[in-house]
Design a protein around this nucleic acid. Structure first.
Lengths: 353, 353
DNA sequence: GTGAAAGCGCTAACAC
DNA sequence: GTGTTAGCGCTTTCAC
C-alpha cells in the first residue's frame, strides 16, 4: 500500500472551483469570504482529507510552532516533572516539543543549539545546570528566544530565567531540623559545580550560624544527585561522623540512597537519624518512611518557562526577566518523630520566617 | 538586540561570487566542484555564519529529519529507558525527536498523529500499550512509516512491531521461584486490558500447571503498574492470603510498593516472602533488598524500533515485521535467600529452558 | 469577495 | 564545473 500523496491546497481549490487564495483564507479562518464559498471549500477539504504541509507553512510564515528543550537527561524524576510542566503549557498553546538530551556532554549542547537554530524551532528552553555559559550568550546575543530554567546566568540581564530560591529552601530544611531539636546535622550536597549546590550550602551554613551551631566540615559531603551517590555519601558520613542525629540531603533521590545506607547500618529513621530531602519528587511520598523534603515547584517552573518563552516569541516585553519561585517545606515522617506526631500524608507547611 | 536576519544561500552565493547551485552542492558535500570554488564557498559561508533553513530544506526534499514519538507519559522509568534507546539511535542517525505524551487519553493520540502527519515528521514510534487499534491501522493504511513498540497489533501483518516475550518472561520468573522451593506463589499483574498483562498471566498459569501446582484465583490481583498500586495490591494479598511464600509482580515499580506493604506487615524479604519483579528498571538494583526481576531490554527495544523505522523511511524492505525480543532473569536478593547465597550485585542468568 | 502572482529558502533537472 | 530555471506548498500583497 503506497502512501497516498498528500493533496495540496491547489487540489482543494480545484475541486472546490475556487482559487488557492480563497482556500487559504477559509482554512485559516480569515474573514471576508462568502458563506457559500466557505462551505464549498470546507467540503472539498473534508472529502479530499486535506492536511496542510507544516514545512511549507513554516517557510512562508517563518515560524515552526515547535519549541526545543535541551536537558541533561530525562531519567531523573526532577527533570521528568519539569518537562511535564513544559509539555503541558506548550501543548495548551499548540506548540510541539523537540527534545534533546545532552547526557551531560557540553559538546552535545552546542551541537543541538546549532541545529535547533536551523529555524527548526521558534524558541529554546534550556534545562542545563552545568554547560557552557558562553554558549548561552551566543544564542541569546543573536536575539534567539531563549529561556533558562533552574539556573542563574548572572552576568546577563537579558537572559530570561526561571529559578528557585535554593538558599531559602536550605534554610527551611535546616530551620525545621533545628526546630525539631536536632543539633548534629550533616549535609549531603549535590554536584559541587552547580549554582544551586552553592546556594544550598550557603543556606546550611547560615542556618547553623544563626542558631549558634558550629560548622563542622566533616559533616558535609558532596555527591552527584543520584541514589547511589547518596548511598555512598551517607556511608561516608556514618563512618566518619557516627554521632550525627540528622542529615539534610540536597535531593530526594540521594535521600533514598541515604536511607538504604542508614538502614543497612542498623539505625532507624527518624529515631536514630532524621532526614530531609530536596525536590519533592513523587518518589518522596512513597519511601519508607515517607520523606520530609523541600518542595521545588517543578511543574510550575516548566510551565512558566514556556509562558515566558512564548511571550518573547510573540515579541512582547518581559517585565521581569528573572523570576524566582519559592520552595516549600513538606513535612512527612523522616523527621521529628520524637518531638511531635506528624501525619504521614502530605502536610504542606510553608516556613515563612 | 534584534535577531540578525538569517542569511540565505543566495547571500553566500553572492559573496562567494558563484551561483546558489554551487553553494548547495558544496554545502551538501556533493562531488563535482572545483577545489578552489569549494574553498571560496566555504569561506563565504563561514564569514556570513550561514545556517541552512530546515523548513525550506524539508519542503524541497520532502523530508524533515524528525521522528515523532507518542507515549503515555515520560514519568514511568520503563518509558524513560525506552525513550533513551529511541533517542540514542535517532540521534546517531541524525534525526530529531518530537515527543508527544497522551497522558493515557486516546483522544490526544489521534490529535497528535493527525498533527504529526502534517509532514512534520518522517515517521512515528508508537509506545502506547492501550489506545485505539483502528487509529494505528489508519496511519499505517495510509502508508505512513510507523513502528509499534511493546504492543502486538495482531490482526495486521503490515504493522512493524518490536515486542517482548512476556509469556516467557513470566515463565522465567515462575521457574526461578519454583526452583527455589516456593510453592504458594501469588501474582500481582498489571493493567488488565493490556496484551502484556494477559501474556504474563498465561505464563504464570502455565508454569504452575507444569509443576502440578494449583491455580488459586485469590492469589492473583490486578493493579496498575504504579508503586501505590503495588502497595495496595500487596496489602490485599496479605490480608486475603497470608500464607503466600512468594509473589511475582508484573513491574518493578509495583514490586517496590509491595515491598513497603510487606515491611509494614512486619515480614521480611525474602525470608518470609520472596519477590520477583518485572522490567529491571534502574530502581530495581537499588531497593532493599535488591530486587530479583525479569529484565526487558528496554534500550534495545527503543533503538531497534528506530532502526526499523528508518529502514522503512528509506524504503527498504523489512524482512521480519514482528521482532520479538527475549527477557532475561536477573537474580538479586529478594528471592532464594534460604536456598543459596546470591551476590547482591547484578548477576545475569539467562534461563534457557 | 475573489484571483493572479510573487516569494519564503532550498534542491535538482537540465543546459552550457 | 558551473549557472539557469523550475518547482516544493503555503501565504499574502495587490488588482479586479
Amino acid at each position: 500500500m503506497e502512501r497516498s500523496k498528500a493533496c495540496t491546497i491547489a487540489d482543494v481549490a480545484r475541486t472546490a472551483g475556487v482559487s488557492p487564495t480563497t482556500v487559504s483564507l477559509v482554512l485559516n479562518g480569515k474573514s471576508g469570504v462568502a458563506k457559500s464559498t466557505r462551505q464549498k471549500v470546507l467540503k472539498a477539504a473534508e472529502t479530499l482529507n486535506y492536511r496542510p504541509n507544516a514545512s511549507a507553512r513554516s517557510l512562508a510564515l517563518q515560524k515552526t510552532n515547535m519549541l526545543g528543550v535541551i536537558l541533561p537527561d530525562i531519567g531523573s524524576p526532577f527533570y521528568t516533572e519539569l518537562i511535564r510542566g513544559v509539555e503541558q503549557e506548550a501543548g495548551a498553546q499548540g506548540y510541539y516539543l523537540v527534545l534533546c538530551t545532552t547526557s551531560g556532554r557540553p559538546s552535545r549542547e552546542q551541537m543541538y543549539s546549532r541545529l535547533l537554530w536551523e529555524q527548526r524551532v521558534d524558541g529554546l528552553v534550556l534545562l542545563t545546570p552545568r554547560g557552557n555559559e558562553s554558549f548561552i550568550r551566543g544564542i541569546r546575543g543573536n536575539g534567539f528566544p531563549l529561556v533558562v530554567v533552574d539556573r542563574d546566568i548572572q552576568a546577563r540581564d537579558d537572559v530570561v530565567e526561571v529559578i528557585v530560591n535554593n538558599f531559602n529552601g536550605a534554610i527551611q530544611a535546616m530551620e525545621h531540623l533545628i526546630g525539631c531539636g536536632y543539633r548534629r546535622i550533616g549535609f549531603i550536597n549535590g554536584l559541587a559545580g552547580i549554582q544551586a549546590s552553592q546556594d544550598r550550602l550557603r543556606g546550611y551554613q547560615i542556618a547553623l550560624q544563626e542558631h549558634d551551631l558550629p560548622f563542622v566540615s566533616e559533616w558535609v559531603v558532596s555527591s552527584d544527585f543520584t541514589q547511589e551517590g547518596g548511598y555512598a555519601a551517607m556511608k561516608e558520613l556514618l563512618a566518619v561522623s557516627p554521632s550525627l542525629d540528622a542529615v539534610f540531603v540536597a535531593s530526594d533521590r540521594m535521600a533514598v540512597g541515604a536511607m538504604g545506607a542508614i538502614r543497612q547500618d542498623g539505625r532507624r529513621i527518624p529515631d536514630d537519624i532524621a532526614l530531609v530531602g530536596f525536590d519533592d519528587v513523587p518518589l518522596a511520598a512513597q519511601t519508607d518512611p515517607p520523606l520530609t523534603t523541600v518542595r521545588q515547584p517543578m511543574l510550575e517552573m516548566g510551565a512558566l518557562g514556556v509562558k515566558l518563552l512564548l511571550r518573547m516569541i510573540k515579541g512582547k516585553a518581559i517585565e521581569h526577566p528573572k523570576v524566582t519561585l519559592q520552595t516549600e517545606l513538606v513535612v512527612r515522617s523522616s523527621t521529628c518523630a520524637h518531638t511531635k506526631g506528624v501525619d504521614e500524608r502530605r502536610v504542606r507547611q510553608v516556613d515563612d520566617e
